[in-house]
Amino acid sequence: MLQHPPRNPIDLAQAFRSSVAVLASCFALSDAATADTFTIGIVPQFEPIKLAEIWSPILRELEEETGHTFEMVGSPRISEFEDGFIAGDFDFAYMNPYHFLVARKAQGYDALVRDGARELFGVLVVAKDSGIENVADLEGKTIAFPSPNALGAALLMRADLDRIHGLEYKQEYVSTHSSTYLNVALGQMDAGGGVMATLNRAEPQVRDRLRIIYETTRVPPHPFVAHQRIAPDVAEAVQTAFLKIADTTEGQELLARIPMRQAIAATSAEYDGLYALNLQNYWVD
């Protein structure tokens, strides 16, 4: 049974910060750096150990299909992941759609693959046994978000709460989607912003204590992208490998954990519609 500690934000990313060094050795995909070794940054929607468990077998499959080596670069916090792609630290990356707009402008990243079976949208959750029934009930309350620039969980959500509902509320940033859901489930926060994909992947004992009271506008889902420095033939090989993995039952099960239920080829132009949402007003540098 979940316990109820004192009301302080729970930061799972901080708790797992020390595990990043361990993951580098436990989940290393190659001991030797060669000309064919590429770094991959993954937006930290979940704690580092869970991300490594999800992505390590996928990267091994990409290695098998392409002959290249892929090393996952850990980012304990979303803000550190943002610093990484803005600086061009990642050869490849999996990021939210608005991150992609920023990454494309800053470093010329191009979209390769996305989920063709779903759209991305934010969800506002409250504790199942709370008396909060709608957005208006959150006036003056405290809402948890993974980070200021998490697209569905924070950017779209904060824009809607401001522009559509005119809500006045207190904000707390707790590093990951998992932390957000746990804080709300334990009554540490009155509500929390997330996305349906990560809510579905939350631990059952946490997810079952939450209910959704609001959903945001829908946008194309997270793309897997390549930096412009990556040779076109390498980028194409990685894209082809992703699609080949998605063409098998075993591969579909691996990708579903991201979650990416139906991997399809993506183009950068598919994300241009996000500019019309004017989310730059809510982006925090």
Score class of each variant (00 low, 15 high):
172 E>Q: 12
19 S>K: 06
25 S>D: 12
39 T>L: 05
76 P>T: 09
132 I>V: 13
6 P>C: 12
83 D>V: 11
206 V>T: 08
180 T>I: 05
278 N>V: 05
196 M>Q: 15
29 L>T: 14
282 Y>F: 15
18 S>A: 15
210 L>H: 11
73 V>H: 03
29 L>M: 12
123 V>S: 10
219 V>A: 01
57 P>N: 07
140 G>P: 06
141 K>Q: 11
170 K>F: 09
104 R>C: 10
238 V>A: 02
270 E>R: 04
144 A>E: 06
141 K>C: 04
244 K>V: 04
179 S>G: 11
215 E>P: 08
68 H>K: 12
74 G>I: 06
183 N>T: 02
84 G>N: 13
64 E>G: 04
240 T>S: 06
123 V>A: 13
176 T>Q: 02
83 D>R: 14
193 G>Q: 00
160 D>S: 15
198 T>P: 04
104 R>N: 15
62 L>Y: 01
224 F>W: 02
15 A>C: 13
142 T>W: 06
257 R>K: 15
201 R>S: 07
27 F>I: 05
147 S>C: 08
183 N>F: 03
10 I>G: 00
29 L>I: 11
128 K>H: 08
52 A>N: 08
67 G>Q: 10
273 G>E: 09
214 Y>L: 09
264 I>Q: 04
110 D>K: 15
58 I>N: 00
250 E>N: 01
53 E>K: 14
144 A>Y: 03
102 V>F: 12
187 G>E: 06
84 G>E: 07
104 R>Q: 15
21 A>H: 11
73 V>Y: 02
3 Q>I: 12
187 G>C: 11
277 L>K: 02
